[in-house]
């Protein structure tokens, strides 16, 4: 099947088998390898991308379902050579170690901050509870999201 979709504002087309998982289209076909795979059962969130602005697990969607849709992956966070405040936050607060869950965490965090500009710690923890991290113990991921929230608020106030 022919699939047309937009990823990070760029149009892509591919001929795919209906059973091709969206994550494999993104990684193996379109070679955007920042999106990862960590489980088989929709638990880990390493494959999180934004579908029409909402974070979803791209291992639990067929590529054909994304036909005509607009996606965003970790590669789309940096704009014109400028890192997104979340990316800055993850570096500043040591919100990543091995980096494997990080793209998923970033995408979830990005969508979350769009709706919750002044989140509490508990709200952040719930928001990222579909993304597993084995390295950081989450404390610094929470701080990284808070860090980004503060930067974004400052930016909005200016």
């Amino acid at each position: 099947m022919r699939v047309q979709l937009s990823i990070n504002g760029e149009k892509h087309e591919a001929d795919v088998e209906p059973r091709l998982l969206l994550v494999h289209l993104i990684r193996d076909v379109l070679r955007l390898t920042g999106t990862h795979i960590g489980c088989d059962t929709t638990h880990c969130g390493a494959c999180t991308v934004l579908l029409e602005g909402r974070p979803v697990k791209s291992c639990t969607m067929f590529a054909v379902q994304a036909n005509g849709k607009s996606l965003m992956t970790v590669e789309g966070l940096e704009q014109d050579g400028k890192l997104h405040p979340l990316q800055e936050g993850f570096m500043a607060e040591h919100g990543l170690q091995c980096g494997y869950c990080t793209p998923g965490m970033l995408m979830t965090g990005y969508a979350f901050l769009g709706k919750h500009p002044t989140p509490t710690e508990d709200e952040i923890r719930v928001a990222i509870s579909g993304n597993l991290c084995r390295c950081t113990g989450y404390v610094n991921i929470v701080k990284a999201v808070q860090h980004a929230a503060a930067t974004l608020r400052e930016g909005a106030a200016r």
Binding site: R27, T33, F90, M91, L96
Partner: peptide, 18 residues
Amino acid sequence: KRKEDPRFIRGKGTYVDD
């Protein structure tokens, strides 16, 4: 700050499946 982070936060790490 960690020297490895700039690639990881951009999704530019190279893991084996990449």
